[in-house]
Simulated scan of single mutants.
Amino acid sequence: MAEATPRAEQLVREYVEIWNERAYSKIPDVVSESFVMSDPAAPEEGVPGPAREVHGPDGLEAFVRGVVDGFPDFRVTVGDLLSSDDLVMYEAEITMTHEGEFGGIPPTGRAVEVGEMSTFRVVDGKIQEHRAYFDQQEIYEQLGLTED
């Protein structure tokens, strides 16, 4: 049965809080055991799931911790949020400063600001799927990792 829209939206807001507040203890309450996140920045090693995917609550925690190690001030600011039954979508802005190693890239000290779109599927009261869409190349450019 489909989730009520307000509950699905609340779950997504709690999910964003996991990222912004480093609320790792909330992960099992928010995502399902079979959770899958598709994210272009997800590494091939160190996080459960293949490259560009994160699997399960443990995988999400490992990924968030890895991102925060590389970008201690990582923050998602949600703008527009739309929902229908078990589907939630938002447009957001990600801000972060590269102060630690991430993905084998030593810290650059540079700040990044990039737009993001995300879709979430809610099943049986928990987030089952998260798909993040952002321009990875734009992040590399802001970090000074590309040639002009």
Rank of each mutant, 00 (worst) to 15 (best):
E9C: 12
R110G: 04
P57Y: 04
A92N: 01
H98V: 01
E138N: 13
A62K: 13
F120W: 07
V114D: 02
W19E: 11
A8W: 07
A2S: 14
Y24R: 01
A23Q: 09
D86T: 09
S32M: 09
A51G: 11
M96P: 07
A8V: 09
M96I: 12
M37H: 06
K26F: 03
G49E: 03
M89P: 05
E53K: 13
K126V: 14
Y24V: 04
S38N: 10
S34P: 00
D86V: 00
D69L: 01
M89E: 03
E129S: 09
L60N: 09
I94E: 08
E53Q: 15
D85R: 15
T119F: 08
V114S: 05
D80F: 10
P40W: 03
D85F: 13
F71P: 00
F71G: 06
T95F: 02
L60W: 09
E116K: 08
P107K: 08
P107N: 06
E33I: 13
V78A: 07
A42T: 03
S38H: 14
E61V: 07
G46I: 01
S118V: 14
Y24F: 15
E45H: 13
G100A: 02
G49Y: 04
K26Y: 05
A42Q: 00
G103A: 07
R110D: 08
G104W: 01
K26R: 15
H98Q: 05
A4N: 12
H130P: 00
W19M: 11
M89C: 11
E9Q: 14
I105S: 05
R52D: 04
T95I: 12
H130T: 04
D73E: 04
A92H: 03
G125K: 09
G109A: 02
A62T: 01
V114L: 06
E45R: 13
F35R: 10
R121W: 03
D58R: 13
E61D: 08
V16I: 15
V47G: 06
Q137C: 00
A92G: 07
Q10A: 14
